[in-house]
Nucleic acid binder design. Structure first.
Lengths: 189, 189
DNA sequence: GCATAAATGTACCGTAGAGTACACACTAAA
DNA sequence: TTTAGTGTGTACTCTACGGTACATTTATGC
């Protein structure tokens, strides 16, 4: 095996941050080599399909993280209120209280979406479904639960846009807090 | 003057759609010549600073449109409720009921933001300020008005992300409807 | 130690990128 | 009818891009 004990999964966080910062189109291979510390040789060894495969790996990693740390808990926690609270905590942590953007959301906006269609689609579908499920088990009617879940996921994404546009992460924190209150207030608020 | 009576302002809509579709980094000059029907000669005649200046012109055009059709009405309409209703109508129209993304929001997410920092910042500042003002005049307390305005602008942006990620414009329509109801319900809801 | 396979660095390829130079076309006013 | 200025097309530069080829290095199981 090699000198630098690099493994494929080791570089995925760095890849993610590179794509976050520059977008898919704007993220050049030279930037990627810089950020990961890996030369083209290693990169194409781990990701034979190049940039496309790198981004797919990052998206899969993101999906996996959310599935484990957010969606599964929303779905399976015996106390749905606890699952919802946990979701807001984890989301706040993941997006660094508004200092980090959502890669999937960013990819969704331009034609990058077409390259990763199913992944982008499934990420948001899974999120809204899992949240709606938890809200329903927490007392919301089916329809209200679906609507509220949609509002909350949209609100989180929009808060990230707003926070970054203003270069003010506190916007995210504020919006997130109010979304949480709405989710926990119960169906009749 | 020239054979084709093209004017600078004529190409701005086409430029906007090109940037929307590909993002700033992903939008090549050859794509721009294709979409506008103008050769490099004409483009650099109208926009000597190149792509940067083209995008600035588009952002200025967007800002101008919103100032005229949304912000001014929010601020100046004698009936603030009418201003708010009008905002939701115009926003729905502008974003083609969810089939079109927000260019400013898209630029905000990656490092494109840095190129257009003040423009991006001011767009959202102006929007939230004007909306908060209308909400306040419509009966919301100052603090509630500010918070609700933030939630609504974020909600709109997030709804655009969600709609495009799902390739389902109706998500946007649904979220927008609920945001409008919240805005019009009054401060005690 | 030696074979094997996993990593790695370097040099290279063709292409497409943004931007420039400039001659030409056209129009309108003098 | 000249002239001046505004568009426009073409050809060009130079750079950076994504990707490939391949020889070389390294670690480990044998």
């Amino acid at each position: 095996m090699p000198r630098e004990i690099a493994e494929r999964c080791d570089v995925i966080p760095a890849l993610g941050e590179a794509f976050r910062e520059h977008g898919f189109a704007g993220c050049s291979l030279s930037e990627i080599t810089r950020r990961t510390g890996l030369g083209k040789g290693s990169l194409y060894h781990f990701f034979p399909e190049g940039k496309q495969e790198m981004a797919e790996a990052v998206l899969d990693d993101v999906a996996n993280w959310f599935e484990t740390n957010v969606f599964a808990i929303l779905r399976e926690s015996p106390d749905p209120g606890h699952g919802i609270t946990k979701m807001f905590e984890e989301v706040d942590r993941y997006f660094r209280s508004g200092k980090r953007i959502c890669l999937v959301g960013a990819f969704a906006l331009d034609d990058t979406r077409d390259r990763f269609e199913t992944r982008v689609n499934e990420y948001f579908t899974a999120w809204t479904r899992a949240l709606a499920d938890a809200l329903k088990r927490n007392g919301f009617a089916a329809r209200e639960a679906r609507e509220t879940a949609e509002d909350i996921v949209a609100g989180i994404q929009g808060a990230l846009v707003l926070a970054r546009s203003q270069d003010d992460p506190t916007v995210f924190t504020r919006v997130l807090k109010r979304l949480r209150e709405r989710a926990m207030a119960g169906p009749d608020q």
